[in-house]
Structure formats: structure tokens, C-alpha cells
């Protein structure tokens, strides 16, 4: 009862998060309609300050900052969402398989993933992208696969707890196949606790793509993307011009808004700890 109640009445922070996030989605979808100037259109001098004409000023080669940010939402959000979807598709499938298919499969998969996680993901991505080049497809596959290792671990640990429950044992004893057990018995019970994780992984991938773009290895010009825009305008900060802060702020607002929503989802199931009565 209380769960439904809090689902219908999100706290203020979650409401703010939802509004901000929807706003950016709106920008991404309708960018050509709402952006005052074109994505790659040079409209004025370099690094003009904010004015009525250019609300957020212009960038390092005189393009309108606001329009670039609106167009950038497409690439930045789209790539991060694609990475996260791919990583969940791979990670959840593998994780459930490891939990359901028995000890040998589990050991092989888990040890393999442990080893893949023994190199920091940024270093791994830098290596691969430097050698394979950063086309959009390479970028999405690389990040999606690397991130799926984390998702695998989580999905497996959740699924392992479900697989040992009696209702899964009942299905085994009934003679159900592997696929049926994964899809019908385990998956429906594993997904709800992973909703919050989806948000967190999205944030991580979003920041990760932004970081890679900032280092010049993520989304490549001429596409506008927020991380790349920070990189292009980075030098202006030494002159006291806040140009790189606008796209950086857009990145920050997006992650904060998703985190606020995730926080609310997590708090629905959280209970105060046992000792809180005495504290």
C-alpha cells in the first residue's frame, strides 16, 4: 500500500529530476525546431559573452552555444542510452545464464569477467578506441561491452539469489528447460531490483562518454556533443570566459536529475537501519 502511495507521490527532488530529464529529452527530440541557430553554423566572433542574441554566447569558432547544446543533447544522450541498453542486453543475458546454467558455465563466465574487470574501464576503452578509431558504432559497442561486465556481476548476484529459491527448484523438478527458467522464473524477479541500476549505469556511461569526448576520443566533430564542447572551449577558462562551463553544466544537470530519480526509486524499498531507533 505504502509502495503504491510513494510511487504516485514522488518527493520534490524526484519531481525536479523528472522535469529536468524530460526537458533534455524534449531538446534532443525537437532540436531543429527549438534551436535558434544551426548545429555547425558560424554566427559571430569567437567567445562572445551571453547576450539577447546569443543567450549563452558563442564558442571557439563563433557558433551559438545554446544551439550547440540543444543539438548536443541528441548525440550525448543517444549514445549513452544506446551503450546502456546494449550493456544491459549483454550483461543481463549472461548474468542469468551464469546463474541458471550450472556451476561450470558460471565459473567460466565469472572468472572471465573478473579478469576483464582487472583493467580499469577507462584504460581499456582508451586502448581499444585508439587502435580501432572512434566511429559511433565502435564507441557504442566498446562502451556497451565494457559496461556489460559490471551489469553481468550485478545481474548474476541477483539471479543467484533467485535461482536458489524453491520456486525455481520446482520448475527444474517439473522438467522445465533452461530458457524457460531464465525467462519466466528468474527474469521477472530480477528486473525490478535492476531498475535503479539502469539509471546508475546510464549516468556512468553518460559521464564516461562525456569524459572520452573531452579527451578527444569519444563522439567526433562535426557532431555537437557536450563533452567535446567542453574540450573545444577549455582554453577560454584561463581568460575568465565561462564558455566550457555551459556544456559541462548540461552534463551535470542531466546526471543529477537521473540520480535524483534513482534515489527516489531506491528509497521506496529502503528501510531505516535497526539501530536508528536509538540514534
Amino acid at each position: 500500500m505504502s509502495i503504491h502511495h510513494s510511487l504516485r507521490n514522488p518527493p520534490l527532488s524526484a519531481k525536479i529530476g523528472i522535469v529536468i530529464f524530460l526537458f533534455f529529452i524534449f531538446c534532443a527530440v525537437f532540436a531543429p525546431l527549438i534551436a535558434p541557430y544551426g548545429e555547425a553554423e558560424s554566427v559571430g566572433k569567437t567567445w562572445i559573452g551571453p547576450s539577447a542574441e546569443f543567450w549563452l554566447g558563442t564558442d571557439n569558432i563563433g557558433r551559438d552555444m545554446l544551439s550547440r547544446i540543444i543539438y548536443g543533447a541528441r548525440m550525448t544522450l543517444g549514445v549513452a542510452a544506446a551503450c546502456t541498453l546494449l550493456s544491459f542486453l549483454i550483461g543481463v543475458t549472461m548474468g542469468l545464464l551464469a546463474a541458471v546454467a550450472g556451476k561450470t558455465v558460471d565459473q567460466v563466465l565469472s572468472r572471465f569477467i573478473d579478469l576483464m574487470l582487472s583493467i580499469p574501464i577507462l584504460v581499456f576503452a582508451l586502448m581499444i578506441l585508439s587502435m580501432l578509431g572512434s566511429s559511433l558504432l565502435t564507441l557504442v559497442i566498446t562502451i556497451g561491452v565494457l559496461d556489460s561486465f559490471r551489469v553481468f556481476r550485478l545481474a548474476r548476484s541477483i539471479a543467484v539469489n533467485i535461482v536458489v529459491t524453491e520456486f525455481v527448484e520446482v520448475a527444474r523438478l517439473r522438467g522445465e528447460g533452461l530458457w524457460w527458467i531464465m525467462r519466466r522464473e528468474v527474469l521477472p524477479n530480477a528486473l525490478p531490483p535492476m531498475i535503479a541500476e539502469f539509471g546508475l549505469r546510464f549516468c556512468f556511461n553518460f559521464l564516461f562518454v562525456a569524459g572520452l569526448s573531452f579527451l578527444g576520443l569519444g563522439i567526433q566533430p562535426p557532431f555537437a556533443d557536450w563533452g567535446g564542447m567542453v574540450r573545444e572551449n577549455g582554453r577560454s577558462i584561463a581568460f575568465g570566459i565561462p564558455a566550457p562551463l555551459w556544456p559541462a553544466l548540461a552534463i551535470a544537470l542531466t546526471t543529477i536529475s537521473v540520480n535524483m530519480i534513482v534515489d527516489w526509486i531506491l528509497s521506496i524499498n529502503a528501510r531505516p537501519s535497526g539501530a536508528s531507533a536509538e540514534m
Binding site: 524453491e166 520456486f167 523438478l173 522464473e185 521477472p188
Partner: peptide, 18 residues
Amino acid sequence: LRKMQLIYQQPDVALNPR
């Protein structure tokens, strides 16, 4: 498998909540 069935101690966890 059909001819031999099992009933568990904890009915809570013997039924898929979904």
C-alpha cells in the same frame, strides 16, 4: 518427474511472486 511431486516448508518462497 510428474509422478513424484514436492511440497516445501516455506510456501512464501515456493511460489513465484511474479
